[in-house]
Design a protein around this nucleic acid. Structure first.
Lengths: 279, 279
DNA sequence: TGGTCAGTTTGGTCATACCAAACCTGTTGA
DNA sequence: TCAACAGGTTTGGTATGACCAAACTGACCA
């Protein structure tokens, strides 16, 4: 054995006389469907195996060579399927390692958008569109908090506010506590989608956010806004809360937008004719 | 010639004596980077070519064989790159056709989530989380409309309402006008992200929506809600508008949730095919 | 018990090959 | 003149087989 290591073409006998049952080799053959790439069919099959719990979260996928035997397709098709699932966030692939099964959730769903969104926030219009939705959503979240916040939520907001106050003057820490305070608002409804959206916002906008001017004075101003939001929520005053938050974020936007224009190069993207998008 | 058509292994000579300059073959060689899949590197290169306008929206990509020569990599790497870009929505691939360059926008961005979201709405909890965000967002949109709607918006809502009224009793048409009426709310803010989100909701939830009971009585009830929303907006009464909308959508949810339980397999798991349609 | 090292496994990549559908193009028939 | 047709060519979809380097394993030694 060991004659120039090569891909094992053995085990091609369909069923033989059954020596023993392979633990996993269920041989769920996949048949080609005209008009649909084989890789997609295999991806569906794999996806179903994950949904049914046959492959569980955190587990490593069988080797590509095993899979090609199980599905009765070539390695090309298997790799294509793995790549497709990985791009959807259902598999986590690291070059050189076995793919790891990821139970999909809304967080990874939004995470997969990262690559695309980075293209979309290349110009001021794209960033504004995104930022405007953030203002809109957070305004609604503040209203919701003002109406529905429970004592535990209020307490959490108070702690977040205190942490934010103590970080005034310490830019990195202020930024972190700032993000955390806003994050609390996204958690109050109890729907996991909102925190996922918050993370996505922070991720997508951080590049511009980071270029925003910082300093003790600005920190103090932002803290005051947070305080105003908190107090409005405590007072159950949705209108006031929304008002303070809108002003707060619009002010932030004014800072953010200053980072455009002065640095028109903004990465590799800023090119003569990249306006007019969406349709 | 014509000896069993096979992939052209010619043009392998690095530069030869230069017969003529290939019109497009810029030969932008890609070199492998350790720890990064070659396909990803090629995908980046292609993505950049799209950003710089070297490949423009709507144009067909060069053939895989051309690309492999231009980048100096194998066809496998090229296909991997194409698949990656397609999964991001930057290329539109149809089996059997050349990929078409797509300038990304928020709509296609959300569209790429489709595959994943289908997994997430496999159980009632997932659908509810998604649906709850819809209620939340639409409530905020109604508030916004009540405060900011301009005469043109009001007129459009009125037309949408009339179309909806006339479709009572005609289930498919009622559904369409229902969706359209809600869609108007998403357009009022003037941010292209909201209509994209609306399309995504319709797409993701349509599977469950379609199983919801329909009928003239239910149509009439839903129409009445639409009317109430419209009137509240006209009266500039944000609170009333939000209230009516919440009741409206929560009632719809009660219908939707009846589609669970009786068919615990819900969707993909139950039947191999018989899903996948809509636009 | 803990670390080392060789052999094996496995993902990444390439080169070829073949098929079927899409695409082109020159020819034919109205 | 031009649409319909037939043939060859291009091109995407898949399958094989191979080889490499990194990751993994397990026997062996300190």
């Amino acid at each position: 054995m060991l004659a120039k290591q090569s891909d094992d073409p053995a085990t091609s006998a369909p069923a033989a006389s059954a020596d023993e049952d392979p633990p996993v080799g269920r041989r769920v053959l996949v048949e080609p469907v005209p008009g649909i790439r084989l890789g997609d069919t295999v991806a569906d099959a794999l996806g179903r195996m994950i949904e049914t719990g046959e492959l569980v979260h955190g587990e490593r996928l069988p080797s590509e060579r095993d899979l090609m035997r199980q599905f009765g397709v070539s390695r090309v098709a298997v790799r294509e399927a793995i790549a497709a699932l990985a791009s959807r966030g259902i598999l986590l692939t690291r070059p050189g390692h076995r793919p790891i099964v990821q139970k999909p959730d809304f967080g990874v769903a939004l995470g997969t958008l990262g690559g695309l969104v980075r293209h979309l926030v290349a110009d001021e219009a794209g960033v504004w569109n995104l930022f405007e939705t953030r203002i809109f959503l957070e305004a609604a979240l503040v209203r919701h908090a003002a109406v529905h916040a429970r004592p535990a939520n209020i307490a959490e907001l108070e702690r977040g506010l205190a942490a934010n106050r103590e970080a005034i003057g310490d830019s990195p820490r202020f930024y972190a506590t700032d993000v955390a305070f806003h994050g609390i608002l996204y958690r109050i409804p109890g729907n996991p989608i909102y925190p996922a959206v918050h993370r996505a916002y922070v991720d997508w906008l951080s590049e511009h956010w980071a270029r925003m001017p910082r300093g003790t004075l600005i920190d103090r101003m932002n803290y005051k806004s947070h305080e105003g939001i908190f107090e409005a929520i405590v007072r159950r005053d949705a209108d006031a809360g929304e008002r303070v938050l809108r002003t707060h974020l619009l002010t932030a936007w004014e800072f953010v937008r200053t980072t455009f224009g002065s640095d028109p190069a903004g990465g590799l993207l800023a090119e003569p004719e990249n306006v007019t998008d969406h349709g």
